[in-house]
Structure formats: C-alpha cells, structure tokens
Design a protein around this nucleic acid. Sequence first.
RNA 1: GCCGACGUAGCUCAGCUGGUAGAGCAGCUGAUUUGUAAUCAGCAGGUCACCGGUUCAAGUCCGGUCGUCGGCUCCA
Length: 641
Amino acid sequence: MNITLPNGDVRVFPEGTTGMEIAKSISEGLARVAMGIYVNDTPYDLSRPILGDAAVRIVTFDNDEGREIFWHSSAHLLAEALESLYPGVKFGIGPPIENGFYYDVDLPGETKLSVEDLPKIEAKMAELAKRDVPYERIEISWEDAVAYFREKGDEYKLELLDGLKGQDVTFYRQGNFTDLCRGTHVPSTGALKFPKLLSVAGAYWRGDEKRKMLTRIYGISFPKKQMLEDFLKQREEAEKRDHRKLGKELELFMISQNIGGGLPVWLPNGTIVRRRLEDFIKEELVKRGYVEVMTPHIGNLNLYRTSGHYPYYAESQFAPITVEDEEYLLKPMNCPHHHQIYSSKPRSYRDLPVRLAEFGTVYRYEQSGELNGLSRVRGFTQDDAHIYCTHDQLKAELTNAIELTQLVFTTFGMEVKTRLSIRDPKTPEKYAGDPAMWDQAEREIREVADAMGLDYFIGEGEAAFYGPKFDFIVRDAIGRKWQLGTVQVDYVMPERFQLDYVGADNQKHRPVIIHRAPFGSMERFISILIEHYAGNFPFWLAPVQLNVLPIADAHQSFAEDVAAELRARGIRVNIDLRNEKINRKIAESEQKKVPFALVIGSKEIEADSAAVRQHGKGDLGLMKVADVFAMAQRLNVPGAE
RNA sequence: GCCGACGUAGCUCAGCUGGUAGAGCAGCUGAUUUGUAAUCAGCAGGUCACCGGUUCAAGUCCGGUCGUCGGCUCCA
C-alpha cells in the first residue's frame, strides 16, 4: 500500500503495517517520541494496523494532537491508580484538556479526597507507569460492553454507552484496567513517567447541577522531568502576576466584606489607572462621533419587562426595590435607559447614527462561589454605548465599533481571540425576535467580519437573546479565559421599545441598535491589564510615574523644584524626603514598580541634571532636567512605550 | 448555590501529639546625612474570622455560620 508522508513523499509498505513501523522506518528517534499517527486525519494507535493507501501524520508531544494522546493515556493511568487504591470507585469521564487531563470519579461510600491524598495517587501512577505495559485496543460489541459495565456496576459508563447504542465500541486496557474509550493512546504506560496531580474539585456529572457531584482530579504529565519542572515553575511565576495579589501590593483596589463580596472599591492608585483608561476611550469616542450621557443606577422594573430581561434573568439580578407602589431594579445593564434617551424626541434619518456612550455601572447578582477579584464581581462599570442607526448604516457602524475594540487590544499589546457568537439552532426558544431577522443579522455581522479580514471562531449558542455578537476573549495569568469587549447587533430592542425615526420617505422606520463595549467591564479589563503588565504599568498609566530621590538633606530643595516642575507638566510625581539611604529609596521605588526614579545628589545639582533610573532596567545615567521633562511628556500619552 | 482546602498583627507567615500567642516587613520614637535594590536601636501592635460544644485547660479537638481560594454550574 502507498503511504503518503506530510512532506509529500510516498512510500510503499505491506498492507497492515503499523504506525510504529512507519515511524521506525523514518527514524528511531521519531519512533521514540511518537504518540500516535493520524491516518487520513483519523487518529490511530501506533500499534494499529493500517489498511489501504493513506496519508499519514505522526504526532508527538510537540503537537496539540500528540499532547492530547499523551494526556488522555495519563488519565487512564490515573484511573487505574484510583481503582487500585479505592476499590469500587466508579468512573465518569477522563479527557485530556488544554493543560493536562482530569478524571471525574464517584468514590465508594463516604470516601473523600483532598489534595493531601494526591501524592499517594501520584506515586501509584508512577509505579504503574514503570511496569511499561501496553495500551491495548479492543473492539467489542455494544452488548458485551454493556454487560461488562453492568457486571462492574459502573452506572456512569452505562449511561455513556446509552448514547452509543447500536454501534460497536472500543475498550482500552492497560494492565488491570479496562475503560470504555474511543482512543487514541500511547503505545505503553512507560512513557508516562512524570505525572503530577494538581488539584481536586467537585464537578457535576455531565455538567448538570441537578445531578450528582463527582470528584474531579486534575493532573498533568510530561515525557521529560525537566518539562514538568519548567511547567511548575512557570505556574508559580504566573501566580505572582495574579491581579488580586498585585492589587493589594500596589494598593490598586480592595474588597471589603463590610461593603460586600464582589463589590470592589478603587483605591487612589487604582483610580488613576482606571481614569487614564477612561480618558483614553473618551478621546476615541469624540473622534468617532459619540456623545456622552449619564443615567442613574436604578430604573423602573417596567423598563426591564419591556426589554425582556426581567423576569428572564431575574435570578441573576438583585431583588427589586419597592417605593410608593413602584418597583425599581438596580440596573443590570444600561440599554433601556439609553433607549429612553433615544426616544425622548423625534429622530430623523438625518440625525442617525445616534451614538450614546456612558461609563455605566451595573449590578448583577453572581453566585458567591463565582466571585473572583476584579474579574467576576457584582457591581461593575461598562464602557458602554448604543448606536442607533439605519439598516444602511449598520455595516459601517459595526466596522467602526470592531475597529475601536481592536485599537484597545493593540494599544495594550494583548493577545485576543474573537468569537462570533450565534444562536444555537437546537434551542430556538432562548432567542427573541423572528428567525428571519436573526438570519439576516447573523449574515450581516459575518459579512462585516469577512470584509474586515477578521480572524474569528464561531461560538454556537453564545449569542445574546436579542442578537448575534462578537466577543473578544483574553486569558489571565493562570490561563483562564475571560470575555472583555463585545459588539452586538440588535433588531429586537428597537421593536420592544418602539424606537423609530422618520426616513426620507416621511415614513416611520425602526433603527438597528449596536451594543458595544471595547473594554467590556472596567473591572475585568483592569484585572487582565494588571496581569498582562505584571503590575509594571507603562508610564502613561502608572499611578506614580516618577519618584524623585534626593540623596541627603542638602539635595532636597533642588529635588523639590524638579518635582514641582514635573507636576506642573501633569506628571504624577512622588518625592522621597525620608531620612533613608539612597539604596533603600531605590529598593522601594523598584518594589512599587514606579517607571522612573530620579536620583539627585551634588553631582546632579551641579549639572542641572538627574540620574535617571528606569524600573527594571537600572541606571540610565545623567540627564539634563529639561530633557527629563521632555521625556516625561513624550511618554505620557496612551500607547507610548 | 454545589464539592474540596483554607481563615493567626496592616502585609507575608511560624505556632509539634491541647498547657492563656511569635517572627520579618510596615507603623511610631530616637540615633545616623547617606551615591543605585532594604542603616541601627527602642516602642507599640492580636476577641487566633464568628457562634456554640468537649475539656481542669482550646489558636490547636468537634459542630454550625460567614468569608477566601481552586473547580463545577451560570453569565444580558
């Protein structure tokens, strides 16, 4: 048979040759690190005979696919270890994930697992790995598979089999452990020498909170010990960037239980960062023809009945407040308020687009277990705006809104993934408005994306109930994904709020609304920003931009003059007049991550200069004070490095 | 909300099998006048998250509550 390699080479092998034999024919080295082989894009075990001509691709730990195989096999090894340590354990699912693998298990009786049990399990895994036994693929009829798990009493596997009714299935066996599994696996357990179990957590069976909570064990493994060590070190480094830790250290924000969980307060330093970001966006809004508005924090409940948010989202809102027989809601979003502004006077097509912007604070009830620093809160401020436009203007306005969002991410150099969030065709009841409208909206938003050459992926079922949207997703220091900016198309609210404008034909028409927020939530954006910079804010954002550090009393008056001159130029300056050694003053300036320190002693005064020290870079030498002023002003603009 | 772990001074953390709380940093006072990452000394600082129980005795053991963290679920 003819086997085509990824480089285009075609080699002839006897029918039934295995992936391992092909790998060996290429090189012994490749055979050693191979995890599996893709045969015409279907993953095969290396021991599985290949029948007929095929294009193949051998995958190793360096490929996503190879890691997937490696971690999937590791999950089976974990399961085997658990079965040997906790006889009677039942197994849910145990897939590979982005960084490692997990297995969901139902432990026998009242057995509880805590992190302290992990080393023991880990040791067992390592021991089992050492036997170096093969992963065997077993094809089995559905009936026999059911019989096996019925015998074993594993109702979870039986439930999984329910979903596979009528098909033959595959088992994988290594040593004493057999699992229902589609595969693929590494050739033998010997490859999995360095497993590391990371955490235990509860996880609902099949993700359904009405069903039993299983114990999930997370782990990771590597083919080389050094890789495991590097991974753990990197993890530790990432934890240092955690915005909750840096937020405290740099006095950016705090969360007080006396105020309430999920209700962060901004400290003076954090307020500066936030205001600078707001100023940055506001400037862009002016350039793009937005007008700013302000609306109160509560609104009549009827607004949200009209919009449909209430009672649909009632369980994620704070309870209504009743005053003089009227009910009010802490606003969970700004849109209805803005719609009132739009409809406060007759609008002509000549007025459109109307772009109403507001840094609007909204309140949503989040479950206590979900609160997280600034990332997940109960009160947050959106850099919100609603664009009311004619249908003809929609694409241009969408493009403009997406560009603004992109400007945000490029300004900060953040890596972002763009998701086009559309309906889930299986649950039409979750969406308002008529399907034809949706089809149109989804088509239009996609056309805009394609015209812009946007790199995006589809998120089926991620649309808002009133329309499709783009979501901009970034990762925090420890790899969790968060949605920041969003741009949404909405044909539903104009209907519900009876919004209209008079067209050139002197007839009333419905506008289209674009909801958009480039930062999304200021709180969440800043949480990511803190981690992105590891607290080392660029000059224009830094709460304190410059520390002036006189060496001794004699240098104070000159230093104070320099500081005053900088302040007069709008630079945020601190001066350290304490009776401390210069080393101490420098150390603290570095710890506080202040971008520049100006050391001032006799030499500097003599030369009308300052010794400039850049945070993280060290001493840059003497600079004339006039040049320092110029540099500070040059750096004090958004995006400057 | 659910599963698990954790909660000691402003911060970071010690406190073994129960015997009335300890360090470093920060703070205050004083000395030192300092040249590129922490000068020295003294002082002060705690209802050991909260409530209840066991015990002669609880930071430590048990139960409950609240909160934090890691997940799960949810996210307009």
